[in-house]
């Protein structure tokens, strides 16, 4: 501070070199070192107070209601049935088996949805660059239509309007190895070892090795159509980010359309597409919780029933939030690994 050319003193016109600690030393509330600590201490104190207040209330209210945190109820028999589940489940099994069956259903819907939405989205995204003007406009209409209508509305539309109005019995929609009826989607498959069996009508009821419920079908179609539109936009953006000169360079090297897409455009578009896909996949996983609206017993639906029966609100919510968080992190981890893989390697 003894330096006569100290910028603080220059600003105050104090060039005469007179030592004046009251002027050159900033007051404590403007101290550069102190402020960050003060601000953070204040914010931390307020946050701590808030958390303590909420937790204190929680403990007091839960004690009063006799619902203090405990996990013993997970072992009690559930008493409700799950219409369809990947994992076997009956009403006399404990709650944790029911929640696990719900998680299995969620994972089935999410994994099928991811595959379907990726296929639909990629095709629709590439159709934006078709030479056919009608196809291009049709894809725009699809994207604009789907993105401006709430997903929940679309799901109930698919379920109540489309799938529940399907005919049953002989009038059902039939294709080779596939039958779509109001009672479900029947697929051909192996029966009793190595017999390839298609859907058959037995006593006016369809039977097949593989049956998917209409609830699952409605959820899957809804999720695929909805996420497909968003993924189409991600794919379109990725392909559009490749400069047109790259296409021209590829064709001037003698590569055909397919070869230039495969070897030139996709490797450059993927680093742009993958982060966007990550976001869409995570939102698909979260959106699968809307299954409750179409009566598909996913994790959220089972958790809601569990809460209604046991009243264990805090535990159920912790389980729900934790599971979805883990699911998101899992998808993120896989997509980040993929991102590393598709990164353009430069020498």
């Amino acid at each position: 501070m003894g330096n006569p050319l100290n910028p603080k003193q220059l600003r105050r016109g104090g060039l005469d070199g007179v030592e004046n600690p009251g002027l050159s030393q900033p007051p404590w509330w403007r101290n550069r070192l102190l402020i960050p600590w003060l601000v953070q201490a204040l914010v931390g104190f307020v946050l701590l107070l808030l958390v303590a207040f909420l937790l204190g209330n929680l403990v007091r209210n839960l004690t009063a209601a006799g619902l203090l945190l405990s996990w013993r109820w997970l072992g009690q028999p559930a008493g409700f049935d799950i219409a369809e589940s990947v994992l076997p489940f009956q009403a006399e099994m404990p709650y944790w088996r029911g929640l696990l069956a719900g998680l299995g259903n969620t994972l089935r819907a999410v994994s099928c949805g991811l595959i379907g939405a990726t296929v639909v989205g990629t095709l629709a995204g590439m159709a934006n660059f078709s030479s056919n003007g009608l196809l291009r406009r049709l894809v725009r209409v699809y994207v604009e239509l789907v993105r401006n209508i709430p997903l929940l509305l679309q799901l109930v539309f698919w379920y109540f309007v489309v799938f529940l109005s399907l005919p049953n019995g002989l009038a059902a929609l039939q294709g080779p190895g596939v039958v779509l009826a109001k009672s479900g989607l029947y697929l051909a498959g192996f029966h009793n070892g190595l017999h390839w069996v298609g859907p058959q009508l037995v006593n006016d009821v369809w039977q097949a090795p593989l049956r998917l419920s209409v609830e699952f079908c409605a959820l899957l179609v809804g999720l695929v159509v909805y996420s497909g539109a968003y993924i189409a936009e991600v794919v379109r953006g990725g392909i559009a980010s490749v400069p047109p000169g790259q296409w021209e360079a590829a064709s001037s090297l003698g590569l055909g359309w397919l070869a230039s897409i495969r070897h030139v455009v996709i490797p450059q578009a993927l680093p742009v597409i993958v982060p966007g896909l990550n976001t869409q996949y995570i939102s698909l996983a979260k959106n699968s919780s809307l299954a409750v609206a179409v009566g598909y017993a996913d994790l959220y639906a089972v958790a809601e029933t569990t809460l209604n029966q046991t009243g264990r609100a805090v535990e159920v919510v912790i389980l729900l939030l934790g599971t979805y968080l883990v699911l998101d992190l899992l998808i993120s981890a896989v997509m980040n690994a993929l991102n590393q893989l598709v990164r353009i390697k430069e020498r």
């Binding site: 914010v43 209330n57 979260k286 809601e304 609100a313 805090v314 998101d328």
Partner: peptide, 30 residues
């Protein structure tokens, strides 16, 4: 603090948060 808030909220489906609001908010406040 901001990172934890943002990532926690973005990691949860809205329906579970609404569920939390309906069922637990009553316990969190006097």
């Amino acid at each position: 603090g901001s990172v934890i808030y943002i990532e926690f909220i973005r990691g949860a489906p809205l329906i579970t948060l609404l569920f939390l609001g309906q069922n637990i908010l009553g316990f969190l406040l006097p």
